[in-house]
């Protein structure tokens, strides 16, 4: 919608990886619409603050609902939406800084709750919007605008982190292949529980990793990207762990645990008629 809005004054840099993620999300939401027959307005996109979060304004075609809130809080906002209205499909779009730095405190609790939302993280290993500072996934030693002598911390390993925290669906993807990414996002949306789709979405301006990911035969650069083989057992946590430990960028579903109840399912389970009281009954419990 906003592309045709002259007042909207944010633009992604030409070639930014987030274009591919946007395409993938458009496809995934259309797929879902076709699969379920539910209207586009039954999707709510909760966006983080960063170049990535602007995706919510840049979608083309039929528009979902959106919240573009404050930095780092996509998960609890999404929890509010989902637990208020479990029938809505809630998707998070956020960057590595938003989700893994300022917002990191929210991942563990939502994983433990198995909140039934799908988070699509655009990892570019940098703070794009604030012009190139180091982020949790920036490699150790990298010189950025905020690490003039090289980054002093080791890089976070998001996939390993999600697995450890108990996220019940973990997929890894690449913005360079929107169709494949859309499939992963659809699987995440269909998963009954907390699903993470972690996407390498390069920032061409501050940390251009396209070549590293895709490789370049002429220059002798091996591609980082590889497809997770068909025979990977996604229900096996040890196998998922082993897969994450391999180098490079795996594409596919790493882990899925269907055995856990989601938070909204649990809440439904505790509803029982005898515990519900009218306001008058509640007041009368204090009668003198």
């Amino acid at each position: 919608m906003s592309r045709k809005n002259p007042e909207y004054d944010f633009k992604w840099c030409p070639g930014c990886g987030d274009f591919g993620v946007r395409r993938a999300l458009e496809l995934a939401m259309i797929n879902r619409l076709e699969e379920t027959g539910l209207p586009m307005e039954s999707n709510v996109m909760v966006a983080g603050i960063g170049c990535s979060g602007n995706l919510v304004h840049l979608l083309e075609g039929p528009q979902p609902y959106g919240i573009h809130g404050i930095h780092g809080r996509t998960l609890p906002i999404a929890m509010g939406v989902k637990m208020a209205r479990p029938e809505l499909n809630v998707v998070i779009v956020a960057g590595d800084g938003d989700f893994l730095s300022i917002g990191a405190e929210h991942i563990g609790p939502q994983a433990a709750r198995n909140l039934n939302v799908c988070a699509v993280i655009m990892d570019n290993g940098v703070y794009g919007l604030t012009k190139g500072q180091s982020s949790p996934t920036t490699k150790e030693g990298t010189i950025t605008s905020s690490t003039p002598f090289g980054k002093m911390e080791i890089a976070a390993d998001p996939l390993e982190l999600y697995l450890t925290l108990g996220v019940s669906f973990i997929a890894s993807g690449f913005s360079g292949n929107p169709r494949r990414l859309a499939e992963l996002i659809n699987q995440g949306m269909n998963h009954k529980g907390f699903s993470m789709v972690h996407v390498q979405s390069p920032c061409v301006t501050y940390n251009d990793t396209f070549q590293l990911i895709k490789g370049n035969a002429k220059e002798g650069i091996e591609p980082m990207i590889w497809d997770i083989p068909e025979d990977h057992d996604r229900t096996d946590k040890a196998a998922a762990h082993a897969l994450i430990q391999k180098r490079g960028l795996p594409v596919g579903v790493i882990y899925q645990d269907d055995s856990r109840l989601s938070l909204d399912d649990r809440v439904q389970q505790i509803w029982s008629k005898d515990r519900q009281h009218s306001v008058d009954q509640l007041i009368d419990a204090y009668a003198i």
Partner: peptide, 16 residues
């Protein structure tokens, strides 16, 4: 798990 979750969570619900 925190008051940051409380406020942003109720905002999500109020919006919904």
């Amino acid at each position: 798990s925190s008051e940051i979750e409380s406020i942003t969570g109720i905002l999500g619900a109020g919006y919904a």
